[in-house]
Structure formats: C-alpha cells, structure tokens
C-alpha cells in the first residue's frame, strides 16, 4: 500500500508541546493509521484494532486502525505528531520524572523511508510503501 502522512488540528510539529497540554491531549489520545474499508476488510481488520504498519526498510510501528473512506483503496495515512513509542515499545519510563507528555505514540517517521529532493535534500515523507497486518 502507498503510505502518506499529515497533520491533525489538535497537535503541532513533533507534538511534544501539544501532547503535554491536557486540553489538547484529551482530544487525540491514540496514534492511528487510516485505511480504506476495502483494504481493512481484506485483512480482517476492524476499526479500533491494533495493527502493525511495516515498511520496505524493515521498520514497523504498532498503531490503531481507523477504517475510513477518507483515504482511497490502497492508500494508508499516518498523522505525524506522535512520539515516545518505538516499534511497539513504550518509552515513557525514560522521560525525566514529571516531564513526560500526557499522550505518547508511535512516530509516523519511524515508518518513513530514505529519499531526498535532488536540489534541497528535502526528505520524502508523503509517499512511501507499507503493508498492514493485525497485531
């Protein structure tokens, strides 16, 4: 499947500030992947299931499935403000005490791959590939 990414209204950038803000954290509590019902049904994935998103360079992230027609068949979308989980592992205990954000989650960019613009060395974070399976 094609993997793409984008923003959410509640968070900004890497999300460290906004995920540490209880008013915003309350509104988006889980990192997720959007996938089309056609693809989800084919893999027996239901809305809210935990899934692995696996990439061609060998990384994988564990996120919640959001089954929606917002994305087309064959396209998966990740929001990119999450952090603090790495390949299924919760890193909360590694933060200084009392300074851990309320909400942690897998970073979309763990799943994004090599690739740069020829002029500016901009990274490619809007178009890669992945497979998705139930945990």
């Amino acid at each position: 499947m094609i993997l793409t990414s984008g923003r959410l209204v509640e968070y900004e950038g890497g999300g460290d500030e906004t995920r540490s803000n209880p008013w915003l954290a309350e509104l988006q509590q889980d990192m997720f992947v959007e996938m089309n019902p056609f693809d989800a049904n084919g893999k027996n994935i239901r809305n809210g299931d935990m899934v692995w998103v696996k990439t061609p360079e060998g990384a994988q992230i564990k996120v919640m499935a959001q089954v929606t027609e917002r994305v087309a068949k064959g396209v998966a979308f990740l929001p990119f403000h999450f952090g603090g989980h790495l390949e299924g592992k919760d890193l909360r205990s590694k933060y200084p005490e009392g300074a851990d954000p309320y909400v942690l989650g897998e970073s979309a960019n763990t799943a994004f791959t090599y690739g740069y613009d020829s002029v500016t060395l901009m990274q490619e974070s809007k178009c890669s590939l992945c497979t998705i399976e139930r945990v």
């Binding site: 890497g14 060998g58 790495l86 390949e87 970073s107 979309a108 960019n109």
Partner: peptide
C-alpha cells in the same frame, strides 16, 4: 527547539 520525530528514518537516527 527541534522535534526529531519530524524526520524520516528514525531507526537509523537512533
């Protein structure tokens, strides 16, 4: 003032 998770290839970054 930089979020490392805004960058791709995070496993290599680690």
């Amino acid at each position: 003032g930089h979020a490392p998770n805004s960058q791709t290839r995070m496993k290599e970054m680690k």
